[in-house]
Amino acid sequence: MTRALSYEWHRVRSMRATWVTVWCAILGTAIFALAAGAIAGAMGDGDLVSSSELASFAVARASMAPLGVGLMSVVSVGGEYRHGTLLTTLLVTPRRSRVAAAYFAVNAVVAAVVAIVCAGLALTLSAMVFKGFSLGMLPLPSILGIIGVHVVYSVGWSVFGTSLALLLRSPSRALLVVIAWPLLVEPIVRSAATLTGGVVSDVAKFILPFSAGGTMQEISFTGARFLFAPADTSLSPALGGLIFTTELAILMGIAWIRFVRTSRAG
């Protein structure tokens, strides 16, 4: 397994697309962090918005790590099918379960690192823009909690991207789904469900993974919510996180089984 991980790490590191997506995520985060700080300043009263909510808001809304690592995972694994390099991978590591494990593990590690970098950048830059807020106002456990949840959310995106690449075996189709599902399909479905109201709205909250995952990041340690939607209209962060991780774990299981049982090498 160590050799499979080593091979996959070298492979991911040697791809230009990996670095392009990671640097785009970091650059995008810098731009959005400045914007998020400005928006928070415009929306909330500096005295009423808690530091923890502001910090959560900056990370949740500004960090481009989730999208970046989702795309990177698709390009990394999908490239195996596109360029036929899956054959080389399977000749080095013939056990498909180990190859799948290496894909998910290496992409998850990269996702975690990128999430930490982007969260740190988002916090730092938004603090520079939002007057009256500094990172020193937040206790360390709160900062670690916010970053930890963001890491989980980003790893979820990487699992989503990796699973889609394995299921669809086409980077272009997988890229389309990775972008369209969380950013287009889910918001439309959620809005439609909200307009319908009642049970449909409640069911939508529990079914849509990225909507649930989004609420996971809406942590306000004081309980007061000014920047995020009111607590009674959305899931609790804990329940959102549970739904998000469970649904992605199921998707990962399906992709894993399909990849391990498939008869073709690409």
């Binding site: 050799r3 790490w9 040697s14 791809m15 360029h83 054959l87 080389t88």
Partner: peptide, 27 residues
């Protein structure tokens, strides 16, 4: 050692980069 009917390698990798990647995988 295996050589298939076409070289399954990433076109943007360098010759030595391709071999380094495999060397890492096979120790």
């Amino acid at each position: 050692g295996v050589m298939l009917d076409r070289l399954p390698a990433h076109p943007r990798h360098s010759v030595v980069g391709h071999l380094r990647m495999i060397a890492a995988g096979i120790g």
